[in-house]
């Protein structure tokens, strides 16, 4: 039974100096902070699950949303997110190695491993920023119906997604964006999409190869593809053209999907960012020899706990947001 330790029997239990968990005050507090932070993240992920179960038949399929890899064109579902996961696990490893070197009082090794950890964290935050940018820009464009549902377009012959630019007609029309310097200074219109609804509708009518895909998921786990006749009648429900994503609407499907994406990965990204900052502070402290003078590297161990926690949370975000 090693569940508790009692210091010498003559010592007064309530007099202080007794450490029943055999961990220092700072380390215990870090653990308790992590427990409460874990509960915050669980709250987010559980509410994501709530919304998803609520709209289980129409929720976007993550594989079809996150298909981009920087510098490459084409359809690569999940590859980049898997790479990001690997980077974060790798930086976790260098962090443990730093803690391990700290236990053995090897200052130069701690410096090296802390440095690598910071680099890994920076790559991860950068990748996440890139993911956000790609997500916000969008790729194919869609039409939102009056009821707030998203209609996407598919090429009938290949089954590939069709971008609005592939089929929309360019009609002579006057579309003008309301800017702050026109009319009343406090009025500003929404930014105009590349094509008007009319141009998309006419393009769909003129191009027999384009079909509409609705949000509804079929029994085989794919989005419902409408026939040509159904597509032509469905487009009449269209209300506006949507390109990319913001907090109000997005071209991928359910509005909540983008909201949760921004909220959960944003909150996690903020944790990674603050983790990198804390790591940098500790990194400089190590270089200055603060812990060498103090006689132990427990501070490295404490930030290490925080850093691993960020990794741990990502493992769950990865599963519940991207895989399941």
């Amino acid at each position: 039974m090693d569940s508790t330790v009692t210091a010498g029997s003559e010592e007064n239990v309530w007099g202080g100096g007794n450490r029943p968990l055999n961990a220092s005050y700072g380390k215990l507090m870090m653990w308790f902070f992590l427990v409460s932070d874990a509960l915050t993240f669980s709250g987010f992920l559980a509410s994501y699950g709530f919304s998803r179960f609520k709209f289980i038949e129409t929720w976007p399929i993550a594989d079809e949303v996150f298909t981009h890899v920087p510098f490459f064109h084409g359809n690569f579902p999940m590859y980049y997110v898997a790479f990001m996961t690997f980077i974060l696990i790798m930086s976790s490893v260098t962090m443990v190695l730093a803690v391990d070197a700290g236990h053995r009082m090897m200052k130069n090794r701690v410096i090296l491993y802390m440095f690598l950890t910071i680099i890994g964290g920076a790559i991860f935050v950068g990748s996440q920023a890139w993911e956000w940018a790609t997500f916000i820009t969008g790729d194919y464009g869609a039409v939102e119906t009056k009821g707030g549902r998203i209609l996407q377009f598919v090429k009938a012959d290949t089954g590939e997604r069709a971008a609005l630019a592939d089929f929309a007609k360019t009609l002579p029309s006057e579309r003008q964006e309301l800017e702050r310097n026109d009319g009343l200074w406090f009025n500003q219109g929404a930014s105009l999409p590349s094509y008007s609804l009319k141009e998309v509708t006419e393009g769909l009518k003129a191009n027999p190869n384009i079909l509409i895909r609705t949000e509804t998921i079929t029994e085989t786990g794919e989005k419902t593809l409408l026939t040509r006749e159904e597509s032509l009648s469905k487009i009449k429900d269209g209300a506006l053209v949507v390109e990319g994503a913001n907090l109000v609407r997005n071209e991928y499907g359910s509005r909540l999907f983008a909201d949760f994406f921004f909220f959960i990965t944003g909150f996690h990204g903020f944790h990674v960012f603050s983790g990198v900052i804390i790591n940098i502070i500790i990194f400089f402290n190590v270089i200055l020899g603060t812990y060498e003078k103090r006689g132990h590297y427990e501070m490295v161990e404490k930030v290490g706990l925080y850093w691993h926690f960020v990794d741990l949370v990502w493992v769950f975000v990865f599963t519940f947001f991207y895989l399941v």
């Binding site: 968990l21 962090m95 691993h308």
Partner: peptide, 30 residues
């Protein structure tokens, strides 16, 4: 997916966060 995630979480917590080396009372509380 969910089981593999829990497996990963276990090894991150036990080996990277050294829960394996802590007192079992701390481990259980956390």
């Amino acid at each position: 997916f969910i089981i593999l995630t829990l497996v990963k979480a276990y090894y991150i917590a036990w080996d990277f966060m050294h829960l394996r080396d802590e007192r079992s009372s701390l481990r259980r509380a956390v």
